[in-house]
């Protein structure tokens, strides 16, 4: 049960982030710079479904405030 909850939480926040990237047309290079990682690392983290929740929370905060 807890594993499912955790999985769902990661999916939800990841989808929210990707939706904001698309909606606000955020350049991935700029976003990854603000996250303190390279673009390659960014794609890898997204692709490998990183289990680092702080990464997604930080990204979500940046994206919500993106102008």
């Amino acid at each position: 049960m807890i594993d499912k909850k955790l999985e769902q939480l990661f999916i939800d926040i990841k989808l929210d982030c990707l939706e904001l990237i698309l909606e606000k047309e955020v350049p991935v290079s700029e976003l990854s710079y603000q996250l303190g990682i390279s673009t390659k690392e960014f794609y890898q983290k997204i692709h490998l479904s990183s289990r680092d929740f702080s990464f997604y929370l930080k990204m979500y905060h940046i994206l919500l405030n993106w102008r």
């Binding site: 909850k5 955790l6 939480l9 929210d16 929370l57 979500y60 905060h61 919500l64």
Partner: peptide, 20 residues
């Protein structure tokens, strides 16, 4: 400065952390 959506995520992750 945190939005309600962010706070909700924080809340959920702390709950899960406690259960784990």
């Amino acid at each position: 400065s945190l939005s309600p959506e962010e706070l909700d995520y924080y809340r959920q992750v702390v709950e899960i952390y406690d259960e784990l």
